[in-house]
């Protein structure tokens, strides 16, 4: 997992570019002037405390929420132009929360990813056989081919998330936005899912993932953005962003940052106030550096 020395220049031109984006709900402004770029081949992590505006920013970028100011450009064209169908051909979004598509199997759910591509014989997917191939590819990439005929609601949390990722990949997007994709997943399924996302990025996808877990973000993201009270307060490589002073100011709790003993990426440790500090003994003979 060579994460640290991946070049940031990969991918060339910006796939998604937001300028001075502002927006929120009713009279409450949540996102206050955010500019960012997503490039192909790069996984960008979006960090920030609860209520910082991560989900709102994703909704603004995804076009689910109209911005009050600023603009979003997808592949150089205005995001809102061409409507939902055109947007869905370029960008897939995994919002938070679990859908309850009663009476649908995995095949049904993933197949809906082909909606914007026309589906059936009238689309641009190369007819019926092309549609079947696209469906198979999305299922295979996410390891969900053998789940195809299971009812979606009978799946475990980790399987459901992989199926929803398969649906997103069936859209054949250039940009993928993920809002807390690893919430409620156990360790193995967190790693599995983000590894799948990384592999798609390596094949050229531009990814933005809002993540709660800063350590997971450091392990899987090339770039990190930190959002606080609706503004971007830091961006850069994990080792540039994950600084104790910045994290303490943003999250409001003391932390310590060390290097991952095996991978070298920064890892953040909580430092609850009032504890006696002592150097940690090694957990196992070969566990300590």
């Amino acid at each position: 997992m060579a994460v640290v020395d991946r070049p940031l220049s990969a991918g060339g031109a910006a796939r998604l570019d937001a300028q001075a984006l502002q927006g929120g709900y009713r009279r409450r402004l949540v996102v206050r002037g955010v500019s960012l770029e997503l490039r192909g081949g790069v996984v960008t992590g979006l960090l920030g405390p609860n209520g910082a505006g991560k989900s709102t920013l994703i909704r603004l970028l995804a076009g689910a929420l109209a911005p009050e100011a600023g603009r979003v450009r997808l592949d150089g064209a205005e995001g809102a132009a061409g409507g939902a169908r055109r947007r869905a051909r370029q960008m897939a979004v995994l919002p938070q929360g679990e859908p309850e598509p009663a009476g649908m199997t995995v095949r049904d759910v993933v197949e809906l990813g082909r909606y914007a591509r026309g589906g059936g014989a009238r689309g641009d997917g190369g007819g019926r056989a092309g549609e079947r191939r696209a469906l198979e590819r999305a299922l295979e990439l996410t390891g969900t081919l053998e789940l195809a005929d299971r009812p979606f609601l009978e799946l475990s949390g980790g399987e459901r998330q992989r199926v929803l990722l398969a649906q997103a990949l069936a859209q054949e997007p250039k940009v993928l936005l993920l809002d807390e994709p690893t919430a409620h997943l156990d360790l193995r399924h967190q790693v599995e899912l983000l590894e799948l996302v990384r592999r798609q990025a390596e094949a050229g996808l531009a990814v933005l993932a809002a993540l709660h877990d800063v350590n997971l973000a450091a392990l899987f993201c090339d770039r990190l953005l930190v959002l606080a009270e609706g503004r971007l307060v830091a961006q850069g490589r994990p080792e540039e962003v994950l600084r104790p002073d910045l994290l303490e100011a943003v999250y409001g709790t003391p932390v310590m940052v060390t290097r991952h003993p095996a991978l070298g990426v920064p890892q953040v440790h909580l430092l609850p106030p009032g504890r006696r500090l002592r150097p940690a003994p090694p957990l196992s003979p070969e566990g300590a550096p």
Binding site: R107, G126, A129, G130, R132, R133, A134, L135, E136, R137, L139, E140, L141, T142, G143, L145, A148, D149, L169, R188, V191, E192, E195, L196, R199, Q200, E202, A203, G204, L205
Partner: peptide
């Protein structure tokens, strides 16, 4: 971990065309 599946191939035309997804039961 899952066995690593291959990354997205940009051209689907090169793939062998045999159905891997069984017909809907």
């Amino acid at each position: 971990m899952q066995p690593a599946p291959p990354p997205v191939t940009p051209s689907p035309s090169g793939e062998p065309d045999r159905p891997r997804l069984p017909p809907d039961p």
